[in-house]
Simulated scan of single mutants.
Amino acid sequence: MTDHARDLESVREATGRLLAAAAALDNAAVTQPSRLPGWSRGHVLAHLSRNADAFVNVLDGRPMYVSDADRDADIARDAARPLPEHLADLRASTARMERAAVLTTDWTRTVELRNGVTDTAARLPFRRWAEVELHHVDLDTGYELEHLPEEFTEREIGFLAARFAGRTDVPATRLTDTTRAWTTGEEAADPAIVVTGARAGLLGWLAGRRAGDGLSVTGGELPALPPL
């Protein structure tokens, strides 16, 4: 069972780590490229702030974003701001999300996210945790996939493996770090393709952050995954 209160605390801790890393930058560094193609570090920080507000919208029963075009325009508008404005915005938007969570009484209800995706309200804190952790890596400040909390890495591998499960454009695949296994892609009782590696490598591949570095593949080639 998802423990939304515990996940909210994990979000606070992860946000604190990210804010500390971002605070060590300067205005020039904010304009430099992040690890996400076409995005500066400022784009990443702006997205995290607007994403926190988007989760407030979901918790309050409103659409997550007005539209994809508005979402992209807001990020582009805010990306070039000076670092202090980014930090203040992220702190304020995080506080708004925390207040919305405190006011939420029904965590069992179904909520709608982007592109018609639905989930239970109790899973929203974990989704936000994933945004903060993975985008912290994207900032390229020295925080790597290997530095992610073990609990988060294991849960996010399971989350992403389930996200691609049943897709006909992803061959049936078994993932393992030799201690635990997950399956993804087309349904099959015994997937022919087996991908083995450290959890950070498995997560990097599933999340589109790595091309499969350090992973070994048997039974075929490393599958190409759809964008998240």
Results as ranks from 00 to 15, higher is better:
T2Y: 10
D7S: 08
S10C: 10
A14Y: 03
R17C: 11
R17G: 14
L18W: 01
A21L: 14
A24W: 09
D26R: 13
V30L: 01
T31C: 14
S40G: 11
S40T: 14
S40M: 07
L48T: 04
S49Y: 05
F55G: 00
N57T: 04
L59C: 05
D60P: 00
P63F: 06
M64G: 13
R71C: 07
A76M: 09
E85L: 12
L87G: 06
A88D: 15
D89F: 05
R91D: 09
A92R: 13
A95Y: 02
A100N: 05
A101V: 07
E112L: 13
N115I: 06
V117F: 11
T118M: 06
D119I: 04
A122S: 12
R123G: 08
F126C: 04
H136R: 12
V137R: 00
D138V: 07
T141L: 13
G142L: 10
E146V: 12
E146T: 15
L148I: 05
P149K: 04
E150C: 07
E151Q: 14
E154F: 12
L160E: 04
A162Y: 06
A165V: 04
T168A: 13
V170H: 00
T178I: 11
T179E: 13
R180L: 04
R180N: 05
T184M: 01
T184F: 01
G185W: 00
E186M: 15
E187G: 14
E187I: 09
D190N: 10
T196L: 09
A200N: 03
G208A: 02
R209W: 07
G212R: 03
S216N: 12
P227F: 08
